[in-house]
Design a binder for these strands. Structure first.
Lengths: 166, 166
DNA sequence: ATAGAATGTTAGTAATAACTAATAAAGTTA
DNA sequence: TAACTTTATTAGTTATTACTAACATTCTAT
């Protein structure tokens, strides 16, 4: 019975896979130096990782050729990339963290968030976005005020009072 | 000029430090086997890590004695523990992730979240908790409904309609 | 077509962080 | 206190993942 399908990928292998996936989406073909440049690691490091990924059935790669994702590799890469995007979105658009910082954090945390937690987060983002104004619901604005000042906004307090009346 | 103060700690060293901090808070004294049991690693692994932490000025440890945190170590441990608690709280109480899963995720992600992002998250949690009912604001209940059904609750839709009228 | 540049691979090294097996010290109890 | 148990340390191994230096291949432009 083949077990390799189940084996968990290391963070660094996930990083390589994600990069290959993203590069493949944007430019079609992927070469060692592209991955090297994207992840800011040496080409030998990429080469070594390609070997591991190849053994795991995530990519196909012949010496001096392009890096090609297998179906399995594409799915895995896509999943990691989704975690990355969703975490970034949450940090940036909801918490108000500057984009570059949001990306940095997401880039590390994407490897550790479980599927269940990610789906909850995605649902939360959907919930916020399902409001008709693109600025999001009132409470999100209230939160941003709260963050800046440490106090609840007047609107926020009014909503609380109304709630208490009922 | 001493640089060692600035040097970033690895995830595993952070884990050891956090465990020592927590064990110290709960039972006062900390021994190698306690850390070993808590992190489920061998005692030699703990021993090795203690050496690294000792060199970094985070703990004091003499052979066969207790592990003692330095002031620097205590501060660092406390900070990681705070990240852990806040992430757990967010996942569990706001997103509704079951506690054990929330803990697991937090335990890995705690090492990667930046201070800035953490402070935003803490502020967000404070914001939610600053509502007078401990179930949190209406929108949080709406979110939980949304998560279960994929639809906005009636209350939620009403709030949106009211907003649009204005 | 070939020289030189760009890209890729191989080989060997280093740091981190886990492990087991063997040994040593400390503690407990008959 | 001597035997035994528990706890701790040392030594040596392994896997991962990065690196540099040296070499090989492929591409490009004259």
């Amino acid at each position: 019975m083949k077990q390799k399908t189940v084996k968990k990928l290391s963070s660094s292998i996930e990083d390589y896979l994600e990069s290959i996936y993203v590069l493949n989406q944007s430019s079609g073909t992927v070469r060692v130096k592209d991955v090297s440049a994207k992840l800011e690691v040496s080409m030998p490091s990429v080469h070594q990782a390609l070997h591991v990924m190849s053994d795991a059935g995530l990519i196909n790669h012949e010496n001096y050729g392009y890096v090609e994702l297998t179906e399995k590799g594409r799915k895995a890469g896509k999943k990691i990339w989704r975690s990355h995007r969703m975490l970034t979105k949450f940090f940036n658009e909801i918490l108000g963290v500057p984009l570059s910082r949001a990306e940095e954090d997401a880039c590390k945390m994407e490897h550790d968030i479980s599927s269940k937690t990610l789906e909850r987060l995605v649902s939360f983002i959907d919930f916020v976005e399902s409001y008709p104004h693109k600025e999001g619901p009132d409470w999100l604005k209230s939160f941003k005020y709260f963050y800046k000042t440490g106090k609840r906004s007047k609107e926020c307090d009014e909503r609380i009072k109304e709630k208490l009346k009922k």
